[in-house]
Design a protein around this nucleic acid. Structure first.
Lengths: 351, 351
DNA sequence: ATGAAAGCGCTAACAG
DNA sequence: CTGTTAGCGCTTTCAT
């Protein structure tokens, strides 16, 4: 009895914050095998005696052993994770992409190492360098525009590089995305078809949000194609564009171009903000002014009225990216890019 | 000229995906110094000749050298990051906490390694193990309830453990949070004071969302204290609770308890969903039924009407957590916990 | 201001 | 099925 007590005390001491954590060598000593056997016991597939493994795993659990990925990665010269950069931590679209990617990679026991650029290319550069230092198996970046140095870092990286959510002007490696301009063009085409003529666009004015700028560009091109006035452009400032900024932009739109019949917003969040501004002014949507958004966020499916929008298939982007990475690592990629087809969803906020 | 070309070709070859990436030893060879000097050149504070450093950094840039954190961390037995678990990647409150934490840690050049539990304790356990394997400097978890094994892993971890967003029943190490129950009690008190009596609660029915359950508990307690009926409880299912689920819950509430005067929702998102259900049914808010939310999400400040809510000071939680970690690492923590005081914000959706 | 030697914890490669 | 040896790329420690 006394012996057991002291044994427990010993274990507690071993596991305390002040002692060095146990290593495989410690487990090896206790179980009377070599460190290599301990290493094998932790790999699912390796040939090892069933009882030996069980004893080792038991000893590990008793000791409070935690596997050291750092040492493992260094020795085997490969890691078990993929680095990912997204603009914002709080965006349902990017969250869906990361979710789809994560679930696909999980089938191969790979993790995601995530970083946020805050829509800033300088920050993206810093982040890419940080992430590459940790030796990921692949790196996924959101967008196709980067600082010169970031581009160089990616080009020189000894791993696959995948750009997403854009069709890069000059792809670095692989890419999976769609044309933001073409998606908005489709919405403009629809708006024109159902009879709107005086159409405005909110957002996309700041170059650093390349996807937003692209959407705005698509608007301008489409309006010109239809021979319509493409100058009803309202700035909304740098991303992320809040609901509040959407509301403010709508207030300016109503002042500058009071006869506007429809407005396309750079995202559903700004579109909802714009809608609330109309509600506060008792301006009927869509009868007096129609509203379109982008991204198919939940709010657009539940607001009153619901919002016409574009579903960019964010989750698909992530899943396809994950599958591409697995194919590349298996050395059998079919292709170096995947084009995604966004879908126009017409709801109550427009004809 | 020809020489320059071949030089460039050589560099390209060195940097290609098929060659082994350069190491400090390569830089050392090229610049004619020892690897140790190269190592010093990358540390900001180390004593090293200015020109030597410049030559080394230049050579590194030319070679496309990327510092290997894995090797560095292994040798120095410490990393430069803090592990963090949050329930969801797409939640403005947790995003703010991570933002505050990230910005505080950045002052000491520390990074965040983030993982998502998807509101699942089993998933949290897996995640905690994964994160600990990478040897973070500290680990921050959201919430104070964990699986037995997760708790053991945290207790045995040789690093500081900080639980956030809750006041844990049995703290593992440090904690920074608030009482979700007390925050809701304050809202109930306010509602009773301004005259509401038949008050309902939406959400918090599933045990796995401990913060939601706590809020519901606070509601029940407060109603009992006031001698009011605390049985108007509407389930909303497992987290994350969507706007849609809030709307569905409101529909059930109106059916089951049609004379309800006010409803408190587990979050602003479900509160907004509930609001839209009222709008679809032309039920006036707040004159016919008042609505309260939780979390002070942007939508509650811009919806029509704006939503009464509770600001949990998510960003503060992150900043205080970051500061505590820095203090612990400097070996001078003032305290082992910080209590945050949420703030009731009364807006248009209630008296 | 710089270098030499050793080793962090794990596993590749080979041997038995 | 298990063990031995060596070494991943860096930095600690001790010299000079």
């Amino acid at each position: 009895m006394r012996f057991e007590m002291s044994d427990i005390d010993h274990k507690r001491q071993l596991m305390s914050k002040h002692r060095k954590p146990p290593t495989m060598a410690d487990i090896a000593r206790i179980t009377g095998v070599s460190p290599m056997t301990v290493s094998r016991a932790f790999k699912a597939d390796s040939l090892i005696n069933k009882e030996t493994r069980e004893a080792i795993l038991q000893a590990a659990e008793d000791l409070g052993y935690v596997f050291d990925s750092t040492a493992s990665n260094l020795r085997s010269q490969k890691s078990d994770f993929v680095a990912v950069t997204i603009p914002s931590i709080n965006n349902a679209n990017f969250a869906d992409t990361v979710g789809g990617l994560s679930e696909t990679l999980a089938t191969r026991r790979m993790q995601i190492l995530l970083g946020y650029t805050n829509y800033d290319m300088q920050e993206e550069e810093r982040l890419i360098e940080q992430l590459l230092r940790r030796k990921p198996q692949a790196i996924v970046v959101t967008g196709g525009k980067h600082t010169d140095r970031a581009r160089r870092l990616l080009e020189n990286a000894p791993i696959p590089v995948i750009e997403t959510w854009d069709i890069p002007a000059k792809p670095i490696g692989y890419y999976i995305g769609f044309s933001n301009a073409a998606a908005v063009r489709e919405m403009v085409d629809h708006f024109v078809k159902v009879g709107y003529r005086r159409i405005a666009f909110i957002g996309g004015d700041v170059g650093r949000d390349t996807r937003g700028s692209d959407r705005r560009l698509g608007f301008v091109e489409a309006m010109k194609t239809h021979g319509l006035d493409s100058s009803r452009l309202i700035a909304a400032g740098p991303p992320p564009i809040s609901m509040r900024e959407g509301a403010n932009a709508m207030a300016r739109l109503l002042q500058e171009f009071p006869d506007t019949e429809a407005v396309i917003c750079v995202s559903d969040l700004s579109a909802f903000g714009a809608l609330t501004e109309c509600q506060r002014r008792h301006i009927a949507v869509p009868s007096r002014i129609a509203i379109g958004g982008f991204g198919d966020y939940e709010i657009g499916s539940i607001s009153v009225p619901t919002l016409t929008t574009i579903n960019a298939r964010s989750r698909d982007i992530g899943q396809r990216t994950g599958q591409l990475i697995l194919d590349i690592l298996d050395d059998r990629p079919d292709t170096d890019h995947v084009l995604i087809k966004p879908e126009l969803i017409v709801r109550e906020s427009s004809k």
